[in-house]
Design a binder for these strands. Structure first.
Lengths: 151, 151
DNA sequence: AGTAGATATGATACAACATAACATAAATTA
DNA sequence: TAATTTATGTTATGTTGTATCATATCTACT
């Protein structure tokens, strides 16, 4: 999908929720969409400042990322302390829980939608120790096709 | 199980692997066994220094934790940046992959062994995006029995 | 016992990630 | 246009983790 369409879609989502899609936010989201792998808040700060006269500080980037996460436009990968755009940036419908596989070699991350069988498995095994599941997002580590061919 | 037995067992595991079970290591593992919830490296540093004349620095604690992780005596919860003892500290046999549920309210963490169905599900869905699973440990978030009753 | 090699820890500095707190600016709405 | 809400600026600081080089301690060998 064209990046401008994605941004337009993101803008709409924000506005519908009573948030603004400012230049800074647009710019930072664009950088994250174009990124080959997950980026840290400091990566995004640097990227922004390389390409803009007005500078931004990490504090602001964290705030902007928090906003995007609330808008469900961005996910945080807590193990990596990095951020990726939601792969369903352009869908209208609501989504299942999702999780991520991160390539140990190149750092690429893939979002995976959780199927119902998996969700059920997780819920069951969590209840078996007396817990009630709240947030099922998680990260796994592996090797992507490219990297496992090379080694 | 009595804590001294657990420590004795840990000592054996270390020695079998050609590692030493020094006083510092013993002391720090003991603190982690007694902990009610996961502790950070800095928590463990403070705990140690409160109870000992010879002080230890975070750097050393990180090294000791790395050692325990290699010995499979301790797990790191990467989302929390905290550490817990392996719930199978005293078993001899090798273990499946495991994951954790963390209570969002009280911070308590429970280790859960992955059953084969779940392992298979994960492997399948990861392969479906061209990845090969390497490390399947992860964390989920929920509410423990106590905390969900209170609210 | 003495020494060589491996293992463990000390010590200092710093990098990377993240938040607190208070001020200003810009948009929205009443 | 004044009041309110939303977004960002600014500075300081907290938290987590690693790099590097030095010293100590244990183990095994002759």
């Amino acid at each position: 999908m064209l990046i401008d369409n994605l941004l337009e879609h993101a803008a709409q989502k924000c506005q519908q929720a009573g948030g603004r899609f400012t230049d800074k936010r647009r710019n930072i989201l664009k950088n994250l969409i174009n990124a080959k792998s997950p980026l840290s808040a400091y990566d995004l700060t640097e990227l922004y400042n390389q390409n803009n006269d007005k500078k931004v500080q990490p504090m602001s980037v964290y705030r902007i990322l928090d906003f995007f996460i609330e808008m469900k436009l961005v996910h945080k990968l807590p193990t990596l302390n990095k951020y990726v755009v939601c792969s369903h940036l352009s869908c209208q419908h609501s989504h299942q829980d999702q999780y991520f596989v991160v390539c140990k070699s190149c750092g690429d991350a893939q979002e995976i939608s959780m199927n119902s069988k998996l969700t059920q498995e997780l819920n069951e095994s969590v209840s078996s120790v007396g817990f009630q599941l709240v947030d099922a997002q998680f990260e796994l580590f592996g090797l992507c096709k490219n990297c496992s061919n090379q080694s």
